[in-house]
Design a protein around this nucleic acid. Structure first.
Lengths: 153, 153
DNA sequence: TATTGTTATACTCTATAACTATA
DNA sequence: TATAGTTATAGAGTATAACAATA
């Protein structure tokens, strides 16, 4: 049987790939990418934090975070404040302007998604998709706590 | 209320972004990216087809497909055959070597995903995730037929 | 003129390696 | 030496514009 890849895993792989493409493309007029907006949303959701913590939350390398926050600061969406106690650390905060931009961006993406859901899914399917989102988050969420437990590879 | 983005849509956005990152990173030793493998899988699943059809299936621009299939042909994973009836068209087929590489790649990614699912999800959650995959596919699937129906932007 | 495909170019996304500054 | 952050570089992923060949 050559169907070794027509498995549930393949279906998950393909669906996340294709839906991800759509969600990235559904950006509003603004110049802000999905990864950028996700970082902004995390800063609003969890409050000010240093870059290394942001890297853990977003499952990114610190260097990748550096690049994104440089753009965010350039555009005035976040502000930096050097820690007094540990002068290596820099706390990142979302600015009022950042909150405005975030709301507009998320609003536009949400509009796209909700329209697509209304057009193509039944209410029952919408509900199951939302439940599945938490499952996917859990699946992609092996940071911090878990890092300590399973140190292999 | 400033919670205009703590909505189900935001959760979906974040979960697809984060899980997508993980699935792309879970590549085996081989030099083939997720997008490349997805195209190979589509050629095996649906049989030989021209590049424009592949672009529709994968929701990519034809130029993006051109780039990917150039790499696939360079590595001997697909073959091209000019159509006799319409000499503009080139039929793309997966080669035996392509089938081998595809199975190995999918196998490795599947192993990662199944381990993650076993480690972090209950059997009930696994089942719901698989059901949700078909829903996500439907959501990202507005090509061909739908294009004709809703012609707006 | 429309369609199939390609080349050229650029921007986003992310990683690894090497570095600086501070602890 | 370890940690927080940055710079440099590269490759993956994808898009738009301009083009060639064929219909």
């Amino acid at each position: 049987m050559s169907s070794s890849d027509d498995t549930p895993a393949t279906l998950i792989l393909r669906s996340v790939l294709l839906l991800g493409r759509r969600l990235r493309a559904a950006r509003p007029e603004g110049p802000h990418s999905l990864s950028t907006i996700a970082i902004l949303a995390t800063l609003r959701r969890l409050g000010p934090m240093p870059a290394w913590r942001l890297a853990l939350e977003e499952h990114l390398q610190p260097q990748s975070v550096t690049r994104i926050i440089a753009a965010l600061e350039r555009d005035g969406l976040i502000s930096r404040m050097r820690s007094k106690t540990d002068r290596r650390e820099i706390k990142l905060s979302i600015t009022p302007h950042g909150r405005t931009v975030l709301s507009e961006d998320i609003g536009a993406r949400r509009a796209w998604l909700e329209k697509a859901m209304n057009d193509r899914l039944t209410p029952e399917e919408c509900k199951r998709l939302m439940e599945a989102s938490e499952i996917m988050l859990k699946l992609s969420d092996s940071h911090i706590e878990d890092e300590a437990q399973s140190g292999e590879e």
